[in-house]
């Protein structure tokens, strides 16, 4: 445990733990809304923010936060208004963001694409004390939103129309989700890198789904997996001198594969008694909604005859 004596490593581990908590915490809502790749899009947009930081000699963490929050809000607005050509608009936003980042970095005095690499794939040696302060503040915001508003965010992610009829401010909550995802991207940027951020939002959640039966349990397991793989990846990269982001993501995928293999037998055990208990009811459950009306009609006809 000699690595704990280095200030650099202490900072890196603190940042890693915060990433391990925040990325799955917001990721679970994105997965529930089937917007798993939103984090990836925000990551691309955040590159413009990093480039802007270099150009203006400001802290790239804060400029990336500002730009990715703006990008996430824009994505959410496109989702409301530009339904028909929404995917095209999003593609322009993503690749425009990436190009903007490359352009700004190269415009910056003495800047080249090499400066971007540590932001794209994560780097431990460059986590500065001021970065740690910024990451702590941003992570506190993410944790406050994802835990404090968990019931509201769950309701909106589960069934948006129903949430509106319960009087929840659905638009505000959607914007808050987008902003929180953007903030999480910049929290994770220094450790796992912008290109791999989305993996840490999605893969621990996918792994936790194999075990969890409730949303609360899935949330807790996803965060536990997130923290385990970020600490594991950070320590590995200390000894092996590999980029931490890649190690963390590969560990997360390994956790997903292992948990999927472990949970397959119980899933079969659960399914068998359920199928045996109600063979008749199993059919409507499996049917898509479009086929259910003829099925009911058929049943009523039989009953009436």
């Amino acid at each position: 445990m000699d690595f704990l004596n280095y200030a650099l490593m202490q900072r890196a581990l603190l940042a890693a733990v915060l990433v391990g908590v925040t990325a799955p915490a917001i990721g679970i809502y994105l997965v529930q809304r089937r917007q798993s790749l939103m984090g990836d899009g925000i990551g691309h947009v955040a590159m413009t923010g990093v480039g802007l930081g270099f150009l203006l000699s400001a802290s790239p963490v804060w400029t990336a936060t500002a730009v990715s929050v703006a990008g996430a809000l824009l994505m959410e607005l496109i989702r409301w208004y530009g339904r028909t050509r929404g995917d095209i608009a999003l593609a322009m936003l993503f690749y425009g963001g990436m190009s903007g980042g490359v352009l700004f970095v190269n415009l910056a005095p003495g800047g080249s694409n090499a400066n971007l690499t540590s932001y794209l794939f994560g780097s431990l040696s460059t986590v500065s004390p001021s970065d740690v302060t910024a990451i702590c503040l941003l992570a506190a915001f993410v944790v406050a939103v994802t835990l404090g508003l968990r019931r509201q965010l769950f309701a909106v992610s589960q069934d948006e129309e129903f949430a509106r009829v319960t009087g929840l401010p659905v638009r505000a909550l959607n914007l808050l989700t987008a902003v929180t995802a953007a903030v999480t991207v910049t929290v994770a940027m220094r450790v796992v890198g912008l290109l791999l951020v989305s993996a840490l939002m999605v893969v621990p959640v996918a792994a936790a789904q194999q075990l969890g039966r409730s949303f609360a349990a899935t949330f807790a397991i996803a965060v536990a997996i997130g923290v385990s793989v970020t600490i594991g990846g950070t320590v590995t990269s200390y000894y092996q001198d590999v980029p931490p982001g890649a190690t963390i993501v590969l560990l997360a995928i390994a956790a997903f594969v292992a948990l999927t293999a472990l949970s397959a037998p119980p899933a079969r055990r659960r399914a068998r008694p359920a199928a045996a208990a109600r063979p008749a009811a199993a059919r409507p459950a499996a049917d898509p909604a479009g086929c259910t009306i003829p099925a009911t009609r058929g049943a009523a006809e039989e009953a009436g005859a």
Binding site: I28, V31, Q32, R33, R34, S36, R151, Q152, F154, A155, S157, Q158, D159, E160, E161, F162, A163, T166, G167, L168, V205, Q209, G212, R213, S214, F215, A216, A217, T218
Partner: peptide, 19 residues
Amino acid sequence: TTEGGVPATVTEIVSAGRL
């Protein structure tokens, strides 16, 4: 529209109606 991508229990779904 009720099946999200993440597991949820019956109680968790019904609790959303109480908000």
